[in-house]
């Protein structure tokens, strides 16, 4: 059995090795054929045994959307809740049950539109939650309206002349919301996806994992440039902690203006290529990295872990306060509480 993942210290270990099959349910999966959600589901199911924890101590909580059907297909405990509220529900569960591994599955509309408030507050609190944000840059379940991550000018049923509002960059938002762990991966790259899940499970506190997910019905090919063997090497920056950020002969540099930018790597500038440091205490570097991709072409999209810093975890702090109170005042005495200090007796 592997060493326990750091965020799962308090979760009971599995008694014997598990298989991906054990994590499948008997429910028929009902996404559209070809939907990116299938690949993510398979990647997660085959990753779970690696955690080495009891299946019954794992919980998937989701909101509403195509992606949020996810818990029905995971043979763990699960709750398919209401639109946008999964982070709040999962917060209550994780904060009261440190012996559980709690995962949130959400979509770009679910997490960033109706549930934006819960997302940012979960991130700043740093509750021990792993949030998987399936970003297909569209509202899938409601049949194809633009979402808060859709590019400006998006033509959809609700925006026949093009959408007007500028999108969120989910990872910029997360870094701004004090997230302690921020990563990005792609539905079709199982190996990469699982490496990111591994890092998220290792992280103590809230981990936000943005997964670029193809909706082949309403937004097909949204991430094709990152997947097509002919373009992907040019488009993707595969981040590795401690490694220089280089790809296809290019590298990430800090310019004279202080901004990060991409340039060709030459003999002269090779030593100036920035080395990726996920633990860098300043959020500015991570924020700059989240901004480096071209929002329209997706060129220079970093994938992998952008930020992974240690910060006190809400549920641990809460449990500590309970313990402190009990050791300072003694375990609660109900009769004493009800009686209080000012009483009189009638006989």
């Amino acid at each position: 059995m592997t060493e326990a993942f750091r965020s799962l210290k308090l979760v009971p270990k599995a008694e014997s090795p598990q298989s991906a099959k054990e994590f499948k349910t008997d429910q028929e999966v009902r996404w559209c054929p070809g939907c990116g959600d299938y690949a993510i589901l398979a990647a997660v199911q085959s990753f779970m045994p690696e955690l080495g924890i009891r299946r019954e101590n794992t919980v998937f909580v989701s909101g509403i959307g195509c992606s949020s059907r996810f818990p029905y297909y995971m043979n763990t405990y699960g709750m398919h809740s209401i639109h946008g509220r999964a982070p709040a529900i999962a917060t209550g569960l994780a904060a009261s049950r440190p012996d559980l591994s709690v995962w949130v599955v959400t979509g770009d509309g679910d997490a960033l539109s109706i549930g934006g408030n819960h997302l940012i507050h979960a991130l700043r609190r740093n509750v021990n939650l792993k949030i998987l944000l399936f970003n297909n840059r569209i509202y899938g379940l409601t049949k194809g309206q633009y979402s808060p991550t859709s590019e400006v000018g998006k033509i959809t049923k609700s925006t026949p002349m093009g959408s007007l509002d500028a999108p969120f960059n989910p990872l910029s938002l997360a870094v701004g919301a004090e997230a302690s762990f921020v990563a990005r991966t792609i539905d079709s790259d199982r190996q990469h996806l699982q490496s990111v899940l591994r890092a998220a499970a290792e992280h103590e506190g809230t981990a936000l994992v943005e997964i670029y997910q193809n909706c082949n019905i309403f937004n097909d090919g949204a991430f094709e440039v990152l997947k097509d063997p002919n373009t992907r090497d040019e488009a993707l920056i595969r981040l590795e902690h401690g490694q220089p950020m280089v790809f296809a002969g290019q590298g990430v540099f800090r310019g004279a203006d202080g901004e990060l930018h991409v340039a060709e790597v030459t003999e002269a500038n090779r030593s100036e290529v920035l080395v990726h440091d996920v633990h860098h205490p300043s959020a500015a570097r991570a924020f700059a990295l989240t901004r480096i991709a071209d929002a329209d072409t997706l060129h220079h999209t970093p994938i992998g872990v952008l930020r992974d810093v240690r910060r006190p975890v809400y549920d641990t702090l809460m449990a500590d306060q309970l313990e402190q109170a009990a050791s300072a005042k003694g375990a609660g005495d109900l009769a004493g509480l009800l009686t209080g200090a000012d009483t009189w007796t009638v006989s």
Partner: peptide, 9 residues
């Protein structure tokens, strides 16, 4: 939501 999550637990 948090209260309901805790109740589930």
């Amino acid at each position: 939501g948090a209260a309901l999550g805790a109740a589930f637990g």
